[in-house]
Amino acid sequence: MSGATTASTSAGAPSEPAPAAPGERSWPLWEVFVRGKRGLSHVHVGSLHAPDAELALRNARDVYTRRQEGVSIWVVKADDVTASSPSEKDSFFDPAGDKIYRHPTFYDVPEDVEYL
């Protein structure tokens, strides 16, 4: 989703000394989704950096729910999100435009029929 680097690509070199700040390998980027209250879907609220999923979840709690904004959090590695492209927008979404019979308002029913 963005220019994040992946953390796990240079596995197996744990004993290397920590490099100086420039050129340091970033923690990967995670997208954060918060369920505001029970009954609502999780909604994307932003992103953060964390070395792994466990810490990502905890960082998300501290960064995005300091004011009780949520009852549940998802974190997803940004690299694992596959997104549709704006250039595909026409072929993805426009074909649904003329299928108006999918909407209840398409149908004429007598006004005195209840529970429709």
């Binding site: 953390a7 796990s8 240079s10 596995a11 070199a13 744990p14 923690w27």
Partner: peptide, 19 residues
């Protein structure tokens, strides 16, 4: 700069866990 070793350690741990 003082935190570099901490961030690096977390990366190393994540890599080990993945392996």
């Amino acid at each position: 700069e003082e935190g570099a070793w901490v961030r690096e350690a977390a990366n190393a741990y994540a890599a080990k866990q993945a392996t």
